[in-house]
Design a protein around this nucleic acid. Structure first.
Lengths: 329, 329
DNA sequence: TTGTAGGCGTTATCAA
DNA sequence: TTGATAACGCCTACAA
C-alpha cells in the first residue's frame, strides 16, 4: 500500500493542499471549523507527512550526525544517550554511525552524513581524515568533537583532561614510594591514550625521574592485551609494585592475568583510567579514575543545539576533569 | 556556503543534468569522454549529491529503523553493530532510537520512523503499541522483532528461548538437591523476564514441586534490585542454598549484597541469565547462561535485507537456544 | 481565510 | 549518446 499524500487529504476534506499544510504546521490563518475537519481527516485516514519531501522543500534535514568509534562501549553509548535526549527534545534526530576505530569507515561515514544533509556532526574520531573534517567545517556545517581532540584541528570540543588526571595518578603512585611502576599503555594512535601516556611521563619528570621503557607495555585497550601486559611486566626485574593502566578493559585484564599467574591481587597497587565497577567483589589495591560520559553527552547536545540555533561561530573547548577514587579501604 | 546542485555541475561541464545523473548512477549510455569530464568536475567542485532529493524522487529512503529499549546495554549494542554492518554493506543506513523502556517514547519513535519513510523496522519492543505495530506491518512495511516477542502479534522474530533455558537452569539446581531456591525475578512487563519466570515455574512443576512465593523476589533488572533481592531472600527461613537470577545486572547485585551481608560468596549456588564476565576474579559457585546478541543481530540484518529484496511475506521465527556454562571448577 | 502555482534537487521518460 | 521536461510531496509567496 502506497502512502497517502497531502493532496489526497486535501481532496477528502475538499480544501487545497495549502490549507492542509497550514494545519499541519500551525502557521497561517485557518478557520477553526476547517482546522477541525482537517485534523479529523488526518486522523481518520492515518495520514503521515513525508518528512523527506518536507526536508527537501525546507532545505533542512533536522538531523544531526553522530560518529563513534565503538558502539558496543557503554562509555560512548552513555554519551550518545544524552545527546539523543537533547536532540529529540528539540525535534532533531540522530544519525549514529559506528566506525569501529577504522578511519576508512569514518571517511565514508562523513561522506554519507553530508549526502544526508545533516545540520551538524558530533565526532569522536580516529584522528585521521583531518582535511575532510576541516572542509566540512569550512562548508558551514557545525562540527563538534567529543572525547577525542584531533591534533592540529581547532574545533569545538568537549572532552576529559586525560593528561592532567593521568599525571595526578602516576604522581600519586610515585609519592606512595613505588620504586618500580609498570605502565599498561593504550594504542598511541588514539589521542586519549597518547595524552594519558604523556601525563605519566610528565609525572615522572616532575619527580625528577624518567620512565624506564622496560616497564612500559604497549597494549591496545583490550582485555587480552591487559593480560599479556601484566604477564610481560611481571617478568621484569627489579619487580614492579604498582601499575598504571590506561583503560578499564586492560585493568580487568591485569587482574585476570595476575590470577592466572597466581599473584596476590592485593600485592600490586593499581591505578586505572576508567572504573572497574565490580572491584568490591575481590581484594585489591585499586584506585580508579571516574570518567564522565553523561556530562560530555549533555554538553555536546546543548552545544550543537545552541550552535544550530544561534549560528555563532566561536570555538569552544570544554575540558572536564575526572576524579580519582580509591576503591579499597 | 550553500551546497552545490547537479544543475551547477551540469553548467560547469556543459551538459544536461540528465547526463550528470547518468554518470552518478552508472545507468544509461554516456560516452567515455563525457563521463571522464563529469567525474572530473564532481571531484574538482566537491559535489555531493543530495540524498534527500534522491529519496523523494525514487520513493525509497534506503533507511531502516532500529528501535531499542536501552542503548547503554552492550547486549543490544552488539545486536545493533551486526545489523548496522549488514545494512551498510547493502547501501542502507540505520535510524536507531533508544526508547529507554518507555512505551510512549516507543510510540513516538514508530511515528517518527514512518514519517522518515524507513523501508523496514527492527524492534526490540516494550510489549505495548500493538495496534500501531500491526498497522505498520499491514501497511506493507517489514517489521522484524528481535529479542522480545510481543504477545498476540504474529511477526517475524529472532530471539532466544528464554523459557527453555530458564527451565533447564532451575532444573539443574533442583537436581543438585537444592531444597530452597531463591528467584530474583525480572520485571514481568518485559516479556523476556516473564518467559524466564515461566521457565522456572515449569522446572518446579516437572519436578513435582511448586515455587514458594516467599522465595521469589520481584526485581527490575537493575543492580540495586539484585542487592535488595538477596538481602530480602536471606531473611527467609528455611535458608535458601541457591539462586536463579533473571539477568546479569541483578546477579552482580546479588554478589554485592552477599558481600555487604558478609556471606561467603561460595556458599550459595547461583545460576544467572547472562554472563558475569569478571566472575573468575572471586570465589563463587556460579553458572551463567550465555546469550547470543551477535547471532541475533546477524540474523536480523540478513532477514530484513532479504525481505526488502524479495518481498516475500512468510513469517519466520528463529528461536536460538543459549548455552549454560559453569564458571567455577 | 483560502487557493494557485512554482520550486526544492533528483531521476526517468521520451524525443531528438 | 544526449537533452528537455515532468514528476516525487511538500511549503510558501502571492493573489484572490
Amino acid at each position: 500500500l502506497s502512502k497517502l499524500t497531502i493532496k489526497e487529504v486535501a481532496m477528502e476534506v475538499g480544501v487545497s493542499t495549502a490549507t492542509i499544510s497550514r494545519v499541519l504546521n500551525n502557521n497561517g490563518y485557518v478557520s477553526e471549523e476547517v482546522r477541525e475537519k482537517v485534523l479529523n481527516a488526518i486522523e481518520r485516514l492515518n495520514y503521515q507527512p513525508n518528512s523527506i519531501a518536507r526536508s527537501l522543500k525546507q532545505e533542512k534535514s533536522r538531523s544531526i550526525g553522530l560518529v563513534l568509534p565503538d558502539m558496543t562501549n557503554p562509555y560512548f553509548m552513555l554519551i550518545a544517550r544524552q545527546i539523543q535526549r537533547k536532540c529529540v527534545s528539540e525535534g532533531y534526530h540522530l544519525l549514529m554511525i559506528d566506525t569501529e576505530e577504522d578511519h576508512r569507515k569514518e571517511n565514508e561515514s562523513l561522506d554519507f552524513l553530508i549526502e544526508q544533509r545533516v545540520e551538524g556532526i558530533i565526532l569522536a574520531g580516529t584522528g585521521k581524515n583531518k582535511e575532510k573534517i576541516m572542509k566540512i567545517k569550512e562548508s558551514g556545517l557545525q562540527v563538534i568533537l567529543i572525547d577525542r581532540k584531533i591534533e592540529d584541528l581547532n574545533l569545538d570540543i568537549i572532552a576529559e583532561d586525560n593528561r592532567k588526571i593521568s599525571e595526578d595518578a602516576v604522581t600519586y603512585l610515585l609519592e606512595n614510594d613505588h620504586e618500580n611502576i609498570g605502565i599498561i599503555n593504550g594504542p598511541q594512535s588514539i589521542i586519549t591514550a597518547k595524552e594519558r601516556y604523556e601525563g605519566a611521563i610528565s609525572a615522572f619528570e616532575k619527580a625528577g625521574k624518567t620512565i624506564d621503557p622496560k616497564y612500559v607495555y604497549q597494549g591496545d585497550f583490550t582485555r587480552s592485551s591487559g593480560i599479556s601486559g601484566i604477564k610481560t611486566l611481571m617478568g621484569v626485574t627489579p619487580k614492579l609494585s604498582a601499575i598504571f593502566s590506561a583503560n578499564n578493559e586492560m585493568t580487568y585484564g591485569v587482574y585476570l592475568g595476575m590470577k592466572e599467574l597466581n599473584i596476590d591481587l592485593e600485592s600490586i597497587e593499581v591505578v586505572s583510567m576508567g572504573d572497574l565497577e565490580f572491584s568490591s567483589l575481590f581484594k585489591q589495591k585499586l584506585s580508579v579514575i571516574m570518567q564522565c560520559p553523561t556530562e560530555i553527552g549533555g554538553l555536546a547536545g546543548d552545544m550543537i543545539l545552541s550552535r544550530l540555533k544561534n549560528k555563532d561561530n566561536n570555538i569552544e573547548k570544554k575540558i572536564l576533569t575526572p576524579k580519582m577514587v580509591q576503591k579499597y579501604k
